[in-house]
Protein backbone atom coordinates (compact mmCIF):
# COMPACT_ATOMS: atom_id res chain seq x y z
CA UNK A 1 0.00 0.00 0.00
CA UNK A 2 2.87 2.38 0.90
CA UNK A 3 4.23 1.91 -2.60
CA UNK A 4 0.89 2.88 -4.16
CA UNK A 5 0.70 5.98 -1.95
CA UNK A 6 4.26 7.08 -2.78
CA UNK A 7 3.49 6.62 -6.47
CA UNK A 8 0.42 8.85 -6.13
CA UNK A 9 2.38 11.45 -4.21
CA UNK A 10 5.13 11.52 -6.84
CA UNK A 11 2.52 11.87 -9.55
CA UNK A 12 0.96 14.84 -7.80
CA UNK A 13 4.32 16.58 -7.32
CA UNK A 14 5.10 16.13 -11.00
CA UNK A 15 1.71 17.56 -11.97
CA UNK A 16 2.37 20.51 -9.68
CA UNK A 17 5.72 21.25 -11.35
CA UNK A 18 4.13 21.01 -14.79
CA UNK A 19 1.35 23.35 -13.71
CA UNK A 20 3.77 25.99 -12.44
CA UNK A 21 5.77 25.79 -15.68
CA UNK A 22 2.66 25.95 -17.83
CA UNK A 23 1.33 29.01 -16.03
CA UNK A 24 4.69 30.75 -16.40
CA UNK A 25 4.67 30.32 -20.17
CA UNK A 26 1.04 31.40 -20.30
CA UNK A 27 1.98 34.82 -18.93
CA UNK A 28 5.18 34.96 -20.94
CA UNK A 29 3.13 34.51 -24.12
CA UNK A 30 0.64 37.24 -23.23
CA UNK A 31 0.40 39.61 -26.22
CA UNK A 32 1.74 43.06 -25.52
CA UNK A 33 3.13 42.06 -22.18
CA UNK A 34 2.17 43.19 -18.69
CA UNK A 35 3.81 46.60 -18.96
CA UNK A 36 1.30 47.74 -21.57
CA UNK A 37 -1.68 46.73 -19.52
CA UNK A 38 -0.28 48.35 -16.39
CA UNK A 39 0.52 51.64 -18.10
CA UNK A 40 -2.63 51.54 -20.20
CA UNK A 41 -3.23 54.67 -22.28
CA UNK A 42 -0.15 56.32 -20.79
CA UNK A 43 2.19 53.75 -22.33
CA UNK A 44 5.23 55.16 -24.12
CA UNK A 45 8.07 52.99 -25.49
CA UNK A 46 10.43 54.48 -22.92
CA UNK A 47 8.00 53.93 -20.05
CA UNK A 48 7.41 50.31 -21.10
CA UNK A 49 11.13 49.63 -21.31
CA UNK A 50 11.65 51.16 -17.88
CA UNK A 51 8.90 49.14 -16.32
CA UNK A 52 10.14 45.95 -18.00
CA UNK A 53 13.56 46.58 -16.52
CA UNK A 54 12.03 47.30 -13.13
CA UNK A 55 10.05 44.04 -13.22
CA UNK A 56 12.92 42.00 -14.55
CA UNK A 57 11.19 41.30 -17.83
CA UNK A 58 14.30 42.22 -19.81
CA UNK A 59 16.12 39.16 -18.48
CA UNK A 60 16.42 35.98 -20.56
CA UNK A 61 13.56 33.47 -20.28
CA UNK A 62 15.43 30.92 -18.19
CA UNK A 63 16.30 33.53 -15.59
CA UNK A 64 12.73 34.80 -15.43
CA UNK A 65 11.60 31.18 -15.05
CA UNK A 66 13.93 30.58 -12.11
CA UNK A 67 12.89 33.87 -10.52
CA UNK A 68 9.26 32.74 -10.89
CA UNK A 69 9.99 29.56 -8.93
CA UNK A 70 11.98 31.53 -6.37
CA UNK A 71 9.11 33.96 -5.79
CA UNK A 72 6.56 31.16 -5.52
CA UNK A 73 8.73 29.31 -3.03
CA UNK A 74 8.75 32.44 -0.87
CA UNK A 75 5.01 32.96 -1.17
CA UNK A 76 5.49 36.00 -3.34
CA UNK A 77 2.66 36.04 -5.87
CA UNK A 78 3.30 39.52 -7.19
CA UNK A 79 1.65 42.88 -6.79
CA UNK A 80 -1.72 43.92 -8.17
CA UNK A 81 -1.42 47.33 -9.75
CA UNK A 82 -5.16 47.73 -10.23
CA UNK A 83 -6.01 46.94 -6.61
CA UNK A 84 -2.79 48.31 -5.15
CA UNK A 85 -2.14 45.35 -2.88
CA UNK A 86 0.11 42.28 -2.86
CA UNK A 87 -1.72 39.43 -4.64
CA UNK A 88 -1.10 37.04 -1.76
CA UNK A 89 -2.98 39.39 0.59
CA UNK A 90 -5.80 39.81 -1.92
CA UNK A 91 -6.23 36.08 -2.32
CA UNK A 92 -5.94 35.58 1.41
CA UNK A 93 -8.89 37.86 2.06
CA UNK A 94 -11.12 36.11 -0.51
CA UNK A 95 -9.99 32.49 -0.31
CA UNK A 96 -11.75 31.54 2.92
CA UNK A 97 -15.10 32.82 1.59
CA UNK A 98 -14.76 30.59 -1.46
CA UNK A 99 -13.66 27.60 0.60
CA UNK A 100 -16.69 28.11 2.84
CA UNK A 101 -19.09 28.34 -0.10
CA UNK A 102 -17.49 25.38 -1.87
CA UNK A 103 -17.54 23.24 1.25
CA UNK A 104 -21.21 23.96 1.95
CA UNK A 105 -22.18 23.40 -1.69
CA UNK A 106 -20.13 20.23 -1.99
CA UNK A 107 -21.51 18.80 1.25
CA UNK A 108 -25.07 19.55 0.14
CA UNK A 109 -24.43 18.08 -3.31
CA UNK A 110 -22.88 14.90 -1.90
CA UNK A 111 -25.67 14.30 0.61
CA UNK A 112 -28.34 14.97 -2.00
CA UNK A 113 -26.54 12.72 -4.50
CA UNK A 114 -26.33 9.85 -2.02
CA UNK A 115 -29.99 10.03 -1.08
CA UNK A 116 -31.17 10.45 -4.69
CA UNK A 117 -28.75 7.83 -6.00
CA UNK A 118 -29.80 5.24 -3.44
CA UNK A 119 -33.47 5.89 -4.18
CA UNK A 120 -32.84 5.76 -7.91
CA UNK A 121 -30.81 2.57 -7.74
CA UNK A 122 -33.20 0.79 -5.41
CA UNK A 123 -36.32 1.74 -7.35
CA UNK A 124 -35.01 1.84 -10.90
CA UNK A 125 -38.43 1.70 -12.54
CA UNK A 126 -40.83 4.14 -10.91
CA UNK A 127 -39.02 6.69 -8.77
CA UNK A 128 -35.78 6.28 -10.70
CA UNK A 129 -37.29 7.71 -13.88
CA UNK A 130 -38.59 10.81 -12.13
CA UNK A 131 -35.22 11.38 -10.47
CA UNK A 132 -33.51 10.78 -13.81
CA UNK A 133 -35.56 13.53 -15.46
CA UNK A 134 -34.74 15.87 -12.57
CA UNK A 135 -31.04 15.15 -12.98
CA UNK A 136 -31.04 16.11 -16.64
CA UNK A 137 -32.88 19.36 -15.89
CA UNK A 138 -30.63 20.15 -12.92
CA UNK A 139 -27.52 19.45 -14.96
CA UNK A 140 -28.58 21.48 -17.99
CA UNK A 141 -29.84 24.67 -16.37
CA UNK A 142 -27.13 27.35 -16.67
CA UNK A 143 -25.79 28.77 -13.41
CA UNK A 144 -26.60 32.40 -14.24
CA UNK A 145 -30.20 31.41 -14.99
CA UNK A 146 -30.69 29.41 -11.78
CA UNK A 147 -28.99 32.13 -9.75
CA UNK A 148 -31.11 34.89 -11.26
CA UNK A 149 -34.36 32.97 -10.79
CA UNK A 150 -33.47 32.21 -7.16
CA UNK A 151 -32.73 35.87 -6.52
CA UNK A 152 -36.00 36.93 -8.17
CA UNK A 153 -38.09 34.45 -6.21
CA UNK A 154 -36.47 34.24 -2.78
CA UNK A 155 -34.88 37.66 -2.48
CA UNK A 156 -37.00 40.00 -4.59
CA UNK A 157 -40.50 38.50 -4.37
CA UNK A 158 -40.57 36.61 -1.09
CA UNK A 159 -37.79 38.64 0.55
CA UNK A 160 -36.79 35.62 2.64
CA UNK A 161 -33.10 35.75 1.84
CA UNK A 162 -30.57 38.46 0.92
CA UNK A 163 -29.96 38.78 -2.86
CA UNK A 164 -26.21 38.49 -2.55
CA UNK A 165 -22.96 39.58 -0.98
CA UNK A 166 -21.63 38.43 2.33
CA UNK A 167 -21.16 41.88 3.76
CA UNK A 168 -19.52 42.83 7.01
CA UNK A 169 -22.91 42.41 8.58
CA UNK A 170 -22.65 38.71 7.99
CA UNK A 171 -19.77 38.23 10.34
CA UNK A 172 -20.97 40.58 13.06
CA UNK A 173 -24.57 39.35 12.85
CA UNK A 174 -23.48 35.80 13.57
CA UNK A 175 -24.08 32.38 12.11
CA UNK A 176 -27.75 32.79 11.21
CA UNK A 177 -26.96 35.71 8.94
CA UNK A 178 -24.01 33.84 7.44
CA UNK A 179 -26.26 30.90 6.54
CA UNK A 180 -28.85 33.22 5.04
CA UNK A 181 -26.21 34.76 2.80
CA UNK A 182 -24.82 31.37 1.85
CA UNK A 183 -28.13 29.66 1.08
CA UNK A 184 -28.84 30.88 -2.45
CA UNK A 185 -25.30 30.75 -3.87
CA UNK A 186 -24.74 27.33 -2.27
CA UNK A 187 -27.93 25.93 -3.81
CA UNK A 188 -27.04 27.39 -7.20
CA UNK A 189 -23.57 25.90 -7.05
CA UNK A 190 -24.73 22.54 -5.65
CA UNK A 191 -27.55 21.91 -8.14
CA UNK A 192 -25.58 20.82 -11.23
CA UNK A 193 -23.06 19.01 -9.04
CA UNK A 194 -25.78 17.04 -7.27
CA UNK A 195 -27.40 16.22 -10.60
CA UNK A 196 -24.19 14.86 -12.10
CA UNK A 197 -23.05 13.06 -8.98
CA UNK A 198 -26.39 11.42 -8.25
CA UNK A 199 -26.69 10.21 -11.84
CA UNK A 200 -23.31 8.55 -11.63
CA UNK A 201 -23.95 7.23 -8.14
CA UNK A 202 -27.43 5.97 -9.09
CA UNK A 203 -25.87 3.77 -11.78
CA UNK A 204 -23.38 2.41 -9.26
CA UNK A 205 -26.16 1.63 -6.83
CA UNK A 206 -28.25 -0.06 -9.49
CA UNK A 207 -25.32 -2.31 -10.41
CA UNK A 208 -24.84 -3.21 -6.75
CA UNK A 209 -28.51 -4.09 -6.37
CA UNK A 210 -28.12 -6.70 -9.10
CA UNK A 211 -25.49 -8.50 -7.03
CA UNK A 212 -26.18 -11.75 -5.23
CA UNK A 213 -25.29 -10.37 -1.83
CA UNK A 214 -28.29 -8.04 -1.89
CA UNK A 215 -30.62 -11.00 -2.45
CA UNK A 216 -28.76 -12.91 0.23
CA UNK A 217 -29.17 -10.03 2.66
CA UNK A 218 -32.90 -9.97 1.90
CA UNK A 219 -33.10 -13.72 2.47
CA UNK A 220 -31.77 -13.08 5.99
CA UNK A 221 -34.59 -10.68 6.71
CA UNK A 222 -32.57 -7.46 6.70
CA UNK A 223 -34.64 -4.34 6.08
CA UNK A 224 -34.36 -2.36 2.85
CA UNK A 225 -32.85 0.61 4.69
CA UNK A 226 -30.23 -1.55 6.39
CA UNK A 227 -29.30 -3.19 3.09
CA UNK A 228 -29.06 0.19 1.39
CA UNK A 229 -26.97 1.99 3.99
CA UNK A 230 -24.89 -0.78 5.52
CA UNK A 231 -24.20 -2.96 2.53
CA UNK A 232 -24.92 -1.32 -0.82
CA UNK A 233 -23.66 2.14 0.12
CA UNK A 234 -20.24 0.89 1.19
CA UNK A 235 -19.60 -0.69 -2.17
CA UNK A 236 -21.22 1.95 -4.33
CA UNK A 237 -19.60 4.90 -2.57
CA UNK A 238 -16.02 3.99 -3.40
CA UNK A 239 -16.06 5.07 -7.04
CA UNK A 240 -17.99 8.15 -5.92
CA UNK A 241 -15.01 9.36 -3.89
CA UNK A 242 -12.91 9.57 -7.05
CA UNK A 243 -15.63 11.54 -8.80
CA UNK A 244 -15.94 13.91 -5.87
CA UNK A 245 -12.21 14.60 -6.19
CA UNK A 246 -12.67 15.33 -9.87
CA UNK A 247 -15.56 17.71 -9.23
CA UNK A 248 -13.29 20.36 -7.70
CA UNK A 249 -12.68 22.04 -11.09
CA UNK A 250 -16.44 22.26 -11.70
CA UNK A 251 -16.85 23.74 -8.23
CA UNK A 252 -14.34 26.41 -9.17
CA UNK A 253 -15.78 27.12 -12.61
CA UNK A 254 -19.32 27.10 -11.24
CA UNK A 255 -18.00 29.28 -8.45
CA UNK A 256 -16.86 32.01 -10.84
CA UNK A 257 -20.36 32.30 -12.30
CA UNK A 258 -22.18 31.86 -9.00
CA UNK A 259 -20.02 34.37 -7.14
CA UNK A 260 -20.46 36.89 -9.96
CA UNK A 261 -24.25 36.49 -10.02
CA UNK A 262 -24.54 36.80 -6.24
CA UNK A 263 -21.77 39.38 -5.86
CA UNK A 264 -20.21 36.97 -3.38
CA UNK A 265 -16.73 38.09 -2.25
CA UNK A 266 -14.77 34.96 -3.15
CA UNK A 267 -11.99 33.86 -5.48
CA UNK A 268 -14.39 33.37 -8.40
CA UNK A 269 -15.59 36.90 -8.06
CA UNK A 270 -11.98 38.11 -7.81
CA UNK A 271 -11.08 36.10 -10.91
CA UNK A 272 -13.95 37.63 -12.84
CA UNK A 273 -12.98 41.16 -11.76
CA UNK A 274 -9.28 40.62 -12.44
CA UNK A 275 -10.10 39.39 -15.93
CA UNK A 276 -12.20 42.47 -16.64
CA UNK A 277 -9.48 44.77 -15.31
CA UNK A 278 -6.65 42.84 -16.96
CA UNK A 279 -5.04 42.39 -13.57
CA UNK A 280 -2.51 39.77 -14.73
CA UNK A 281 -0.71 39.03 -11.44
CA UNK A 282 -3.98 38.30 -9.63
CA UNK A 283 -5.36 36.33 -12.56
CA UNK A 284 -2.21 34.22 -12.76
CA UNK A 285 -2.17 33.52 -9.05
CA UNK A 286 -5.81 32.42 -9.04
CA UNK A 287 -5.31 30.11 -12.03
CA UNK A 288 -2.31 28.64 -10.26
CA UNK A 289 -4.29 28.20 -7.06
CA UNK A 290 -7.17 26.48 -8.87
CA UNK A 291 -4.67 24.08 -10.41
CA UNK A 292 -3.10 23.33 -7.04
CA UNK A 293 -6.53 22.73 -5.46
CA UNK A 294 -7.46 20.36 -8.28
CA UNK A 295 -4.27 18.34 -7.86
CA UNK A 296 -4.71 18.23 -4.09
CA UNK A 297 -8.35 17.20 -4.51
CA UNK A 298 -7.44 14.29 -6.74
CA UNK A 299 -4.69 13.24 -4.37
CA UNK A 300 -7.08 13.35 -1.42
CA UNK A 301 -9.64 11.28 -3.36
CA UNK A 302 -6.99 8.67 -4.13
CA UNK A 303 -5.91 8.49 -0.51
CA UNK A 304 -9.47 8.13 0.78
CA UNK A 305 -10.17 5.50 -1.84
CA UNK A 306 -7.15 3.51 -0.81
CA UNK A 307 -8.24 3.65 2.82
CA UNK A 308 -11.84 2.67 1.99
CA UNK A 309 -11.03 -0.30 -0.19
CA UNK A 310 -10.48 -3.20 2.17
CA UNK A 311 -9.00 -5.24 -0.64
CA UNK A 312 -6.23 -2.73 -1.32
CA UNK A 313 -5.65 -2.24 2.39
CA UNK A 314 -5.11 -5.85 3.26
CA UNK A 315 -3.33 -7.20 0.20
Amino acid sequence: MTKALLWRLGNSLLSLALLVTLVFFMIYATPGGPAYSILGVHATPAGVAALNRQMGLDHPVWRQYLTWWDHLAHGNLGYSFTQHAPVADLIGSYLHNTLLLDAVAAAAAIMLAIVLGLAQGARARSLGRIIGAGQIIGYSLPTFFVGTVLILVFAADLAWLPPGGLGDTARSAGLASLWRHLALPAVTLALPLAAGLSRYFGHQVRDEYRQDYVRAARSRGLSALRIAFRHVLRNAVRPLVTVIGMMIPSLVVGGVLTESVFNYPGLGWLLWRSALEQDYPTLTAIVLLIGVLTILGNLAADLVNTLLDVRVRYD
Binding site: Q211, D212, Y213, R215, A216, R218, S219, R220, H231, N235
Partner: peptide, 19 residues
Protein backbone atom coordinates in the same frame (compact mmCIF):
# COMPACT_ATOMS: atom_id res chain seq x y z
CA UNK B 1 -36.51 -14.79 6.70
CA UNK B 2 -33.27 -15.49 8.47
CA UNK B 3 -35.02 -16.20 11.79
CA UNK B 4 -37.02 -19.31 10.86
CA UNK B 5 -35.47 -20.16 7.53
CA UNK B 6 -32.02 -19.68 6.07
CA UNK B 7 -30.95 -19.67 2.43
CA UNK B 8 -27.55 -20.86 1.23
CA UNK B 9 -26.44 -19.61 -2.19
CA UNK B 10 -24.48 -21.28 -4.92
CA UNK B 11 -21.60 -18.82 -5.09
CA UNK B 12 -20.51 -17.75 -1.60
CA UNK B 13 -18.16 -15.07 -2.91
CA UNK B 14 -20.92 -13.03 -4.53
CA UNK B 15 -23.49 -13.87 -1.86
CA UNK B 16 -21.42 -12.51 1.04
CA UNK B 17 -21.43 -8.75 1.46
CA UNK B 18 -17.96 -7.79 0.20
CA UNK B 19 -17.19 -4.83 2.46
Amino acid sequence: RGRDMGLIFQNPLTALSPS
